[in-house]
Every structure is written in C-alpha cells, then in structure tokens.
C-alpha cells in the first residue's frame, strides 16, 4: 500500500518537475516578443516617417496616441487611418486636422538634376537616408527607399525637388 502511494508520488512528482523545468526553459529560450498597443498603433500608421504630425516619426506619434494624443494628425494616412485607429482604440472618429496638412496620394521625391547645385541640405533631413550626393555634386533620390514624406522639399534653396506619382504596381 505504502509503496504504491510512494511510487505514484515519485512518478507524478517527477513528471511535474520535469514538465515545469521544460516549460521554464522554453519560456526563457523563446521569449515571446512583447507586442504592445504602441506596436499595434504603429502598424496602422502609413510609416512614411514624414513627421507632419509634429512628432519625430511614426513611432513617437504612436506612443503619443497610446498615451491619449489626438488621432487626426496624420495627413498621409488620411481618413482611413483615422477610422482604423478609432476602431482599434474604441474612440470616436475625427476629421483630419487640416493644421497638419491635407491627405493626398503619396508620391516619391524627384530631384531635377539640371537644377541641383549640390548643397547637401536635403541629405540630412531625409528620415530614411534615401538621398545620395556629395558637396557640389548632383544629388539623387533612391526611389525604392523614398517614402514621399516631403521633408526634403522645404530645405532645397533652388526648389529643384518635386513629388511625383509613385510607380504603378
């Protein structure tokens, strides 16, 4: 009688210990990536990194929204993004705040190579390092990396940067 009791305690306890150790080890090995509300908000933003919302990029804006900031400051996203964010957060939808710009289809920046004077002013403002060029040499935009954020348009002293419609997919 006592041996049966002991045996079962040892066996079941052993299995319990083993599984516990296994689970603990697995948990440490495959740490689940933390997926916070900020990540979810960021995934809904258009990720152009244009900073038109007044924050330094999409991630900071997502953090601001998570802590109660307004939803309607993202012009590239337009009404659709606001609607998606409102649905995610259970907040009422709002009109796009026109103070931050108006929604329009995203393009890609194009430098008029005839006019470019090689001043390098546009290079440091590009949030995705999509402009290449050197002092007094022509600059050009890498189309595949350009997000169409328009941040390079303003610093250009000769106004040689324009946004053109992106390639058709």
């Amino acid at each position: 009688m006592i041996t049966i009791l002991l045996n079962s305690i040892i066996v079941l306890g052993g299995i319990g210990l083993f599984l516990g150790a296994l689970l603990g080890w697995l948990n440490r090995k495959y740490v689940s990536q933390e997926y916070t509300i900020v990540d979810e908000i960021e995934a809904l933003l258009p990720l152009t990194q244009c900073a038109q919302c007044g924050y330094a990029g999409c991630r900071p804006y997502a953090e601001a929204i998570a802590s109660g900031g307004a939803l309607n400051q993202c012009p590239p996203g337009g009404e659709q993004t606001i609607a998606n964010l409102a649905k995610l957060l259970g907040r009422p939808t709002q009109e796009l705040n026109k103070a931050y710009g108006s929604a329009k289809p995203t393009g890609v920046a194009l430098i008029d190579e005839q006019q470019c004077i090689g001043c390098t002013l546009c290079i440091p403002v590009c949030p995705v390092d999509a402009i290449v060029g050197a002092h007094q040499l022509m600059h050009t935009v890498l189309e595949e990396h350009c997000t169409g954020c328009e941040l390079c348009v303003e610093p250009c002293p000769v106004d040689c940067i324009t946004l053109i419609q992106a390639r058709a997919t």
Binding site: P46, L47, G57, V128, D129, A130, H145, T147
Partner: peptide, 10 residues
C-alpha cells in the same frame, strides 16, 4: 515591405 524597410532605415 516598403513600410518595414522605411522603419529599419529610420
């Protein structure tokens, strides 16, 4: 893919 690429570069 474009947005992810932009994120990495930022």
């Amino acid at each position: 893919a474009h947005a992810e690429n932009a994120n990495i570069r930022v």
